[in-house]
Structure formats: structure tokens, C-alpha cells
Design a protein around this nucleic acid. Sequence first.
DNA 1: CGCTCTGTCCCAGATGTTTGAACAACTGTT
DNA 2: AACAGTTGTTCAAACATCTGGGACAGAGCG
Lengths: 254, 254
Amino acid sequence: MAKTAQNPVKSAETTFEVLDALKDLDGAGVTELAQHLDIPKSTVHNYLSTLEQEEYVVNRDGVYEVGLRFLELGAYARHREKLFEIAKPEVDRLAEETGELANILVEEHGRGSYLYRARGDKAVQVKAHVGTRVPLHTTALGKAILAHMPTERVDAIVDRHGLGGEASNSISSRAELEQALADVRERGVAFDDEERLEGLRCVAAPVLNHDDEIIGAISVSGPTNRFRGDRFREELPQKVLEVANVIELNVTYS
Amino acid sequence: MAKTAQNPVKSAETTFEVLDALKDLDGAGVTELAQHLDIPKSTVHNYLSTLEQEEYVVNRDGVYEVGLRFLELGAYARHREKLFEIAKPEVDRLAEETGELANILVEEHGRGSYLYRARGDKAVQVKAHVGTRVPLHTTALGKAILAHMPTERVDAIVDRHGLGGEASNSISSRAELEQALADVRERGVAFDDEERLEGLRCVAAPVLNHDDEIIGAISVSGPTNRFRGDRFREELPQKVLEVANVIELNVTYS
DNA sequence: CGCTCTGTCCCAGATGTTTGAACAACTGTT
DNA sequence: AACAGTTGTTCAAACATCTGGGACAGAGCG
């Protein structure tokens, strides 16, 4: 179901392959990149010098690196999301009041993109940065989103990306997923019990607009030892829901 | 002095022209983009469909928009800057303690890129987001950086970008610049008195590594009515310098 | 000094890109 | 309900451009 372009511009594809490689290798020289991509040195050099000229890539004494111009584009893309502007202060508050890690996720191209991440004073250290993309069915945030999408969109997403699980507790069949989504709809919140990362639990709530369309989700994550019993099942869900409701109100009137 | 690629990949250039236009127009359809770029519709369509396939662009009911995948690249590029990781918590503190807007800027391709921006409770509203790029000589942050660069690099930057001023108080000749930079070196901090934005003042301090090479600058900005007298000339400079020193220490030991 | 790495440059041949024109799908109007 | 004026999309031929091997200069090292 992933749309493939009829007349793809191959050089554009190559351009992003180069950038992706530059990111994966965390900076590299021409030769190293060429080997990694299995493309002639001279070709890689042409791309890199073009990217440098356009100021999208930096050459720091022999090593090419992804440039900050992408921060410009990325920050712009984030700013364009209504949800970010509105939810950020509320999620900051959520992080402060719980002391944990609070997040905002939106769907794009059938995957989840972390828009923002606020750290409370006890917040766990997590590798994933803002901008990281994750499969929707493997996180509480993603399930909160899927649960409020029209079935046909859920189908399309599952067709496109599959249900590859990253950890043990993960959902692996369409039936399991449907059951999980029904749970989420009933409770109003979604849980994640070490499904994606060991030792990490998460409580997420959907954010809907005034037409009841899903526009994203917010959550609180933390270590299993602080996320259990009443706090995990009652306190935190209520807190997250309350914040989600405030955001929904602000989204409607804006 | 701007390096131009010997064998530029024109399609790569076009790709970024399309993305830039998409940003300038804040989302657009094929026809609108084609007119704006003066390129045939079919060509624009080829690029957009390729970018969509690669998930760098989103099509929201007929309107193409810059996608969040750039947030992934941008957040990565920022994370790669040592200065960001180390300075962020200190700049957060600076914003909290002063109640104003605190910033981190680094140089790239001869221009300044805002890496981070922390808002205190009285912080002014400024249009510029994270990622915004500015001419170095028009801000206190930029002057703090230029003042600690080897002369030949300053020359190269002036040759490349000129001294086009954005406002009245701005520096417009190489001699004026040199005088201003000497001032900065003497005082240790740089000031900005409504040079770039009317009604806005700014105090910035450089951040050097253990080899005395400049790696960026931090600052506090605020409205003229709160930035005057002793607070502007003594208190804030001392505060900013103190924070910059803490950051320098942390940069050295990491 | 010679060896082996780099990154850079060049040019001809192959390949991919460009392009206008034609088409289908919508929207709003008469 | 038919229509005119939009839009986005497709196609294939003409040609501009990208590719890629090889040659080169310079750096680093023993």
C-alpha cells in the first residue's frame, strides 16, 4: 500500500540515501560512504559536494556530517503541527507534576513520530530523541492513536508496515491488535507494559479534535518500579486523561 | 568564497528548491509550486511523488507539506553538537533564574544557527524558532562568536555573506566590525541594542573549548524596558558569563 | 623517500530526467 | 444536468545529466 512514485527522480532518492548513511555512520568520509552504499567514490563525492554547497551538509576537517539546516526544516515541520504548539506547555506541566518523562506523538506515513519529550526531575534516560519514528502498535501512544482511527486506515497501516514486534509482550496478530484497541477505547487510555523497552511502562491518552478525529496522543513513561499498583492503574491514567482533555479544549478553540 | 561544487548534481539542487518552496509557501499544491518555481507541473509532480514515497513530504488532502522526517534528521544534527547536550540544562537554568529568553547559537557555513531556546516566565515572544539562521554580525551571539575566531575566518565570512544590516544600529563596515569585536574581547561579553529586532536587547557570552577555540555562544534577550541600567550592564553580563564558564568546564571534561 | 591512504577532478557513454500534451477527477456555476 | 475551469496525474520521446572508471595531487606514516 506504500505509494510508489510513477516517475521517481532517482537522484533525489540517492540524495537521501547519502544523508541517511551519513546519519547511520554518524559522519563519514567519501571512501567510507562509498563502500557503505556500494556506489563509486566519484558519485558520492558529487552528491556530498552538492549538499555542502547547498549548506545541508558540513565538512569538518575531512568528515562530512549532517548539517543544522535540517534543524531549520525539522523545527518548521514541527511548528506546523497544531498539536505541538498547543500541547507543549501542558505536557511540560505533566512532566513536572509527575516527575516522569512525558511525550507527544503523531502519526505520519503510518508510523509514529515523537514531536516532543519533556523531562521531569526523576525522568528515565531513554535513547530515543525527538523525531524518532516507531511502529504504532508497539507503544501505548501508538495504540491510543490506532484505537481512534477508522478501521480502513488501521488496515492500510497494518498492510503497509506489518506487526513486527520488537519485544516479548508485543502484539503480533490482527485479532490481538483489534482486542487491544477495543480495550483502549473502553478505558480511554492505553498502557504499555515493557512492550518496546524492557523495564519501561507507559500510560497514553488520545487527543481528538472537535470532529472526533485523532490528531495525536500524549503519555507518561517511567520505570516499572514506580509504575505499578494504583499509581499505574488509577492515578496516572486520570492525570494523563485530564491533560489530554485540556489540550482538546485548546485545540477546539484555536 | 562559497565553495561551489565542480560536478553538482542538479536534481539534488532541485530537490531542495522544492522543499524550500514548500516551506516558504507553508504547504502548496503541484500547480502552485510549479508557478512559484517556474518549472513545469509534471517535473514538480515527479519530485513531490518521490519525496512522498521517501516519506520526507506529506500530502494532506491535496496539499503537500514538509514532513516530520526532517525533524528526525534535524534532531539528530543537533544532538551531534556537543555544545547542545552540555549547555541545554545550564541555559534552562539561565532562563528560569532571569525569567527571560535564553539562547544557544553555533556557527555553520558562516551563519548563526539557533540550537536551542529556553523561555523564562516573562520571556518575550519572538518569531524566530530553533533552527533559524541569522547573519552573525547582527546579533550579540554572533558577535561573541566572531570575536573569538581567527581573523582569516572572519574575513572569509564577511567576504561570503557581506555585512548587510537588518536594522538601524547595525554594523556596516569591516572597520566598525573590528572595533565591535575588540570591544567584545575586552569586556568578555557582547551586547545587542535593538540591532536586529526593535525593542529587543541581548547579552551574549562566548563558549570556548580547552584549546580556546570558539564552539558557540549563549545569551539572554529581553525587552528594552527590562534591559537597562545596572541590570543590562552589570547583573546580566555577570550571570551570562558565569553560566558560560560552567559550560566551558563541562565541555572540557567530557 | 616511497608507500598507501585519502579526496578531488575529468570526460565520454549510458541513463535518467525533463517536458508538453492529453486525461481524469473535482468544484462551483449557470 | 451539463459545463467550463480547476486540479493532479500519466506517458513517451528528446536530450540533458548523472554515472563511473581512471588519473591526479596531497597528506600521513614508516
